[in-house]
């Protein structure tokens, strides 16, 4: 029974899907059109002129792929005039018009892409800030939290430890005792 109802549900779902599809077709929206309208939403009336990075209609400035897939700006009446003029002799275009046409197609020049941003200053500043906080923390811990060092860190104790290591002839081949002259009672030259 349950299986049956599942079947009918499946059927009704298919029917619904078909109905939606038919409605979409009647409205003139197929899947392809939906995607095209999504693209259109993103790029507006900007002209698609090339392959770009991966065939997608995105604008980006990149040194190793200098020609993006679409133009940077949408067409405006001003640009339309310039584009008509561009069809004629380029010598008749003024420098400003050429630059306007360039900025219509591209956002940044290649030297602008390469221009340093100065971000490194902020990075260095924040790093030093972090290091200083760590140093202050260490100092405060040293002053107020840690107990004093154990007695074994006192110079007399350390000397006595070294003397005992020599007396025990520790590491006599190439270590400590090998450097001690036991006949003269001092370090070897």
């Amino acid at each position: 029974m349950a299986f049956n109802s599942l079947l009918t549900k499946g059927k009704s779902f298919t029917a619904l899907k078909n109905a939606v599809q038919i409605q979409q077709l009647a409205n003139g929206h197929s899947v392809g059109n939906a995607m095209a309208s999504m693209t259109k939403e993103k790029i507006g009336s900007r002209e698609i002129v090339g392959f770009g990075l991966n065939g997608q209609p995105y604008y980006f400035d990149k040194l190793d792929i200098p020609m993006p897939a679409i133009r940077f700006k949408e067409i405006t009446p001003d640009i339309q005039v310039l584009r008509e003029k561009e069809k004629g002799d380029w010598k008749k275009l003024s420098l400003e018009e050429k630059k306007a046409l360039y900025r219509y197609s591209f956002c940044q020049t290649l030297s602008e892409i390469k221009a340093p941003t100065g971000d490194w200053k902020g990075v260095v500043g924040v790093s030093f800030f972090g290091i200083s906080i760590a140093l202050w923390l260490f100092l405060l811990l040293k002053l107020y939290v840690y107990p004093p060092l154990p007695v074994t860190f006192e110079p007399e104790r350390q000397k006595a430890q070294l003397q005992r290591m020599i007396d025990l002839r520790m590491n006599p081949i190439d270590g400590l005792a090998s450097k001690w002259d036991y006949e003269k009672g001092k370090w070897k030259e």
Partner: peptide, 19 residues
């Protein structure tokens, strides 16, 4: 570029060659 009437592309290509 001249046949395509795209002066921006021409300038961009010279820039790219320079890079």
């Amino acid at each position: 570029c001249r046949r395509l009437n795209d002066i921006a592309l021409a300038v961009r290509f010279i820039e790219a060659v320079r890079e």
